[in-house]
Amino acid sequence: MNEGTKEELISQGAEGRVYRTQFQSKDAIVKERFSKKYRHPELDAKITRSRLNSEGRNIEKCRQLGLDSPAVFLVDKHNSRLYMEYIEGCTVKEHLRLVDTNSAEALDLALRIGKAIATLHDGNIIHGDLTTSNIMLRERDVQKIVMIDFGLSYISTSLEDRAVDLYVMERAFLSTHPNSEELFSSLLTGYVQQSKNGKGVSDRLNQVRARGRKKSMLG
């Protein structure tokens, strides 16, 4: 299909390699899930197939909810390749490293990220790997939030799955951006404001947190 097109490796995630390329003369990236040699072949085939499918489907669903995420050009199941729009911009992780994480602007960004996640959850999509590396800013504009990397996403209506999604994000957020508790609490505020069931999810989040291991029993 794209024979002869130059592909330049831009990152190697845990899921696969991401190359920059052209797709029908549009700027594109292709995410290729290659077989993981450490995994048992049966397990590997099952995981690779299900993640490629859920990523293709749920990016589309995310866009239908009115959120920004890369346009999917082609799901090539035969080669486990997903062709998507190339997004010019930076990750939220890169952005937060450059700005004061306690500034009003950063807190507002976190609030809007919380709202975006609530919209996603209200559409029954659980992202599965929410981190600041998996949310981008189109053209580095803080108003243009783009959700990416839906490889671990799935459909669910349960409170537990929503709460765990936020819990995973909280832990990745605080370890990646130390001393940014305020930023994450702003994110949760945004979530609760936007979500159809903000109270239910945040109560459940408290239960999930208490389940974590070796948490201090104080407070």
């Binding site: 397990l43 099952k46 790997d129 981190t131 819990y167 995973v168």
Partner: peptide, 13 residues
Amino acid sequence: KFVHLPYIVKGMD
């Protein structure tokens, strides 16, 4: 003989 068991990964957890 491999049997599929629940495989639960949530991000880095």
